[in-house]
């Protein structure tokens, strides 16, 4: 955005100064809000509109004010445990994030939300997912642990060679 030394003049300039951005900005954001408003009005006739709205706003709250603080605090705790051992910290972070990501994406199966609909659709139960997630997560930690040990051994060998 261009910065000017003198205040802009004319009607567009006054709009820009009062509104805080260029006229096209006003047009654009108004269009987006009108579209969303139109959709909301249309959906307001649905019996389940309240639930949809709750999920829409709830998703933002769940991410910004629950998920983020939780993972940020978990990371802070992990850093406190690892202290100055940054390499160890990262070899813990990676499998922990992998485990959490898998849970986040595949939780409906892992937690068996929707046993009947799942079985009606597929003819199969949701039983295996929890065990598979645990095994996959364990494998992530195991692989990371092995990689960490290998790296430490290499580092100590290099140190003894250079000594």
């Amino acid at each position: 955005m261009a910065e000017r030394d003198r205040p802009t003049e004319g009607r567009a300039g006054r709009l820009r100064a009062g509104y805080g951005a260029a006229p096209w900005h006003l047009l654009l954001v108004t269009a987006v809000i009108v579209l969303a408003g139109w959709v909301a009005l249309r959906l307001a006739q649905e019996a389940t509109f309240g639930r949809m709205l709750l999920w829409f706003v709830g998703a933002v709250i769940a991410h910004d004010l629950v998920l983020f603080p939780v993972y940020a605090s978990a990371d802070r705790a992990l850093r406190a445990v690892a202290r100055d051992r940054v390499t160890l910290l990262n070899y813990l972070r990676v499998p922990a994030l992998g485990t959490a990501l898998l849970f986040l994406v595949y939780s409906p199966g892992i937690l068996r939300w929707g046993e009947t609909t799942h079985e009606a659709a597929t003819g199969l139960t949701q039983r295996p997912y929890l065990v598979r997630w645990v095994v996959l997560s364990a494998a992530l930690f195991l692989l990371s642990g092995l990689a960490y040990l290998l790296r430490r051994r290499q580092a100590s060998r290099q140190r003894s060679e250079s000594a």
Binding site: R51, P108, W113, T117
Partner: peptide, 9 residues
């Protein structure tokens, strides 16, 4: 994942 916990269409 055939989980309809949200309760809307």
């Amino acid at each position: 994942q055939y989980s309809y916990v949200f309760g809307f269409d």
